[in-house]
Amino acid sequence: MAWHPEIQTVSVGGYNYALLDRGAGDEAVVLIHGITTYSFIWRKILPLLPTSKRVIALDLLGCGGSDMPLDVGYSLSEHAERLVPLLQQLGVRRAHLVGHDVGGGVGQILAVRYPEILIDLCLINSVAYDYWPVQPITTLRIPLFRHFVMSTLDIGAFRMVIRRGLYHKDRLDPELLELFSEPVSTSLGRKAFLHFARCLDNRNLTSIAGELRKLHIPVLLIRGEADVYLSEEISLRLKREIPGCRLLRIPTAGHFIQEDEPELVTAALISFWQGDVVAGAVG
């Protein structure tokens, strides 16, 4: 499965990772998706990013076009640790890390454990602390619902989950629905998705809460104000506790903010990377 013609496969630690790796330059931008998506979620942002930077949009293990082993853990901590050798193999020494949803949790862990490889960190509608997992992910831990997901893919229910995550409801067209649903259209894909949901443990992030207060890298938070899945308190607490952290609120965006307002998100990212004041962001 490849949503983009430039998707390639890189083997690390015995597993194949699907990723888009384009551009050049000393500074890399690494984009990490959330649990219900994969690298396609950056599709509207990628064309807007500066060509002066190398950009890497990857699929986490168990997601998208990457391998989907069911005998390894998919916790955020384990994902973070696997990304270190992947970035090393790709020749990435330091990166602007951008994480969405649980990808933001992976970013927090990397920032605490491996700050030397991060230039800065942007968290977009990110999980944090103990305010997650949330519906509908927690529902997947109930045996009855796991059986339902394994036995059939209810496109109607899936469409509802996506639609609730968008501010601009008309953005949910057949193409977007297909991109979301393709990885879970197979039995293995559904098993991997459920495995990911079972592995989520907020202790991965509560255990580093104290370390977040000691971060010395620039951090930008971007929140879609219409995010129905993740609480506003996540962004507010991160802003209070991370030194120098700034918060940009986008009223016309939901959880899948990359689909709702790609231009606003990209403009904020570019300003942030340049060290400029991000318009509308508060400290």
Results as ranks from 00 to 15, higher is better:
81 E>G: 05
180 F>M: 00
137 I>T: 12
60 L>A: 15
179 L>N: 00
247 L>E: 08
95 A>M: 10
151 S>A: 04
49 L>G: 12
126 S>H: 03
226 A>V: 06
191 K>G: 02
78 E>V: 10
112 V>I: 14
33 H>V: 11
24 A>E: 09
172 L>R: 03
228 V>H: 00
213 R>E: 04
29 V>L: 15
10 V>K: 09
52 S>L: 11
241 E>C: 11
155 I>F: 02
74 Y>P: 15
204 N>R: 06
158 F>P: 06
195 H>L: 05
172 L>W: 00
189 G>R: 05
38 Y>H: 15
19 L>M: 15
170 D>Y: 13
254 G>R: 14
51 T>N: 09
167 Y>K: 08
146 R>F: 03
150 M>E: 04
246 R>Q: 09
40 F>V: 06
160 M>E: 13
168 H>G: 04
245 C>V: 05
226 A>T: 03
103 G>K: 06
154 D>L: 13
179 L>Q: 04
243 P>E: 01
269 L>N: 03
267 A>S: 07
53 K>T: 13
157 A>E: 00
136 P>K: 06
64 G>R: 15
249 R>L: 15
159 R>H: 08
193 F>N: 05
66 S>H: 01
214 K>W: 00
81 E>N: 14
47 P>F: 13
270 I>G: 00
250 I>G: 01
150 M>A: 01
50 P>W: 12
131 Y>D: 02
1 M>L: 12
54 R>I: 14
223 R>K: 14
83 L>N: 04
213 R>T: 15
192 A>K: 06
2 A>P: 02
222 I>M: 10
115 P>V: 04
114 Y>V: 10
183 P>Q: 01
135 Q>P: 07
221 L>P: 02
83 L>S: 06
146 R>A: 11
175 E>C: 05
84 V>A: 07
98 V>T: 03
45 I>Y: 00
19 L>K: 13
71 D>E: 09
268 A>D: 01
60 L>G: 15
233 E>T: 15
210 G>P: 01
220 L>Y: 13
116 E>L: 01
6 E>F: 05
86 L>V: 14
